[in-house]
Design a protein around this nucleic acid. Structure first.
Lengths: 203, 203, 203, 203
DNA sequence: CATGAATGAGTCTTCATTCAT
DNA sequence: CATGAATGAAGACTCATTCAT
């Protein structure tokens, strides 16, 4: 009995995943408005009603996808620790976070596309949260800049502007990697990105 | 008679502009799918049928807007001339182009929003052309990098990746400026942007 | 031009009427829930979108129908004037009101059916107002009873109960008339109804 | 073995009742169309499939409820016996039947609501039978009137019309009692009702 | 017998587009 | 040229019913 229930639950989770995956792909291809429940259920190979057995509405799936992605990303991105001597060097921490983030996106192209393009999309309330998430990251970068200036690591600059530029740069690179097709050696890319950010392109 | 026709033509052009302006605002606010013909004609103060007198379809206005913007931008962005001794120094040329571009966007926020967010939106064929336009710019930057490397101005780097990063950075900054509200001193911003790109943020 | 506009308005009113009539019939046949927009537009010979050009929603038409009916009925039913010497005798007033009401219903069977059966139907807010309307009438009758008792015309009784019984009786008679088919001589019916109410059926 | 089967049958009957009770409440609250299988099974605390183990369809439960009610009512209402000297006086018989009917309804408000409002509801075939049932009662009253006229007890009147009025009156009163809330002294109400019917409200 | 996941026909509503005036 | 009434395809969502476990 217990086994039955458990396998039932597992099956349910499986279905949910299946729908989420289909929805993610459709949203990535067509955007929130352009995506139709029809397209999602066709891709997921389920009946119309089944969709609504697992999600309350179109915007609910959308929100669910973005929320999960933001959770995953938050787990990969933190403040860089500069005071704790037991922590790795700042540049190592930075590299680690960028690498981890890029790898996450490369592992789920559809999701990356979604994250990059769904800043618009009113209607779905998660969209605002996505914007808030980006603001959060910009703020993280800005504070890193301020700290860096204080400890003499970073040159005098406008932290907010630099943060906006950096986040844009990251997005640009991710877009580039996605457009490239399959697995590029993310490692070298990270090195290049960080170099650009820290030293620019001049000789 | 000729005068009448001419003034008629001028009036027609005026109407077209009026619709385009309204549409631009609506598209910027709601995105391609979220924008309704209704919203556009209300904003333009015209009747439903009149809209279709000037544009074939919803996507036609959208395309028209993007096309015009791309034309304007192409007029502001060129290859940087390094051989011609009569041309200004490369950094001056660069600065001029970036400044002109930013000023164009600041003068038309709605359009800037559109350009930044309409990478998604299938349906409207201009969206692909927009993607092509961005590719064009990335290619311009990439070639500038290659040239720069050849003449020993730029350090060894992956031009395509750098181009993606730079374009992303520009988009990030424009987003930032738009979000800021009214007229910031674009001039300083340009200086900062170029500094980041060329020298990074390290001291 | 004025003529055109006016005829346009008249045409619009005509359309509205056409839809209302169709809707009334469908609601009467199938009840609020059972009635589908499909059935209404088929009966009205219009396209789906046209319906929504004239009414916001299904419940809006329903409300509109009931509201209009209640307005019409209110115009036919008033407090019976017993003090004013210039007014007709109470029994004449009563007869007049009952007659007028019955004639109204006989002139629009579908509407009568609707009024008689839509006490249930939640969802449409007019349904509550209909219930309130019936309560209003019951209250009118109850007060008439009280007054009648005071002036010694009516025997001692429970006004509220009598009111409920009387309203029920009226509804029962209307149902009966509708079921009968075409034009019965409403006049005799009214006489009988009033006689039952005032003197009962005993010899 | 026999015992098991019997207890099984009894349990089955129990389940059936449980579902009927739940359904009755839901139908009374929401009407036939407004009632959902979902609401019924939630109220009955059973699984979706179980419902269909006991009833063929939604309309089948509905029919079953109405049928049972009609059976119960038929057991309470008969022709009034005027010839048999051993029978109670006609007015006593009348009183007994009205009282018994009212008590039945007061003991099951949900059912009363259902009976009063389900005259509409096509779809469920029992609705027609309900209409037939009402016709049956009207016919009973009409024949009582005719008989009454023949034996000089009732004044000259139109039996069919009087029957419709009387049935309407009964329904009006039941509605009134239900709306009142808990147990009013049904006895006095019956007296009033019969008085109205027989002698009217004039002094 | 009981369960509840799955189904898909059907519902209301929106909106880009057409066309008679 | 301008208008706006009319259209109907398409979209999101509900719910009675079925069936494998």
């Amino acid at each position: 009995m217990v086994t039955t229930v458990e396998s039932g639950d597992r099956a349910k989770q499986e279905r949910r995943r299946q729908i989420l995956t289909a929805a993610k792909a459709v949203f990535a291809e067509a955007g929130y408005h352009g995506a139709s429940i029809n397209a999602i259920i066709e891709r997921a190979q389920i009946a119309r009603g089944t969709f609504y057995l697992y999600f309350e509405s179109k915007s609910a799936v959308f929100d669910s996808i973005l929320d999960q992605a933001m959770t995953e990303l938050r787990a990969r991105i933190h403040r860089i620790e500069v005071d704790d001597p037991s922590a790795p060097a700042p540049q190592v921490q930075l590299r680690q976070q960028v690498l981890s983030t890029l790898e996450y996106f490369m592992g789920d192209r559809a999701l990356a596309t979604l994250l990059l393009t769904s800043g618009s999309t009113p209607e779905a309330e998660a969209s605002e949260r996505l914007e808030a998430f980006f603001a959060e990251i910009r703020s993280l970068i800005a504070r890193a800049m301020t700290t860096g200036m204080e400890i003499g690591l970073i040159r005098k600059c406008q932290p907010a502007l630099v943060a906006a530029a950096m986040l844009g740069m990251i997005r640009g690179v991710i877009e580039h990697l996605i457009a490239q097709g399959p697995q590029p050696p993310v490692d070298d890319t990270v090195t290049e990105m960080i170099t650009i950010a820290l030293r620019g392109v001049l000789k």
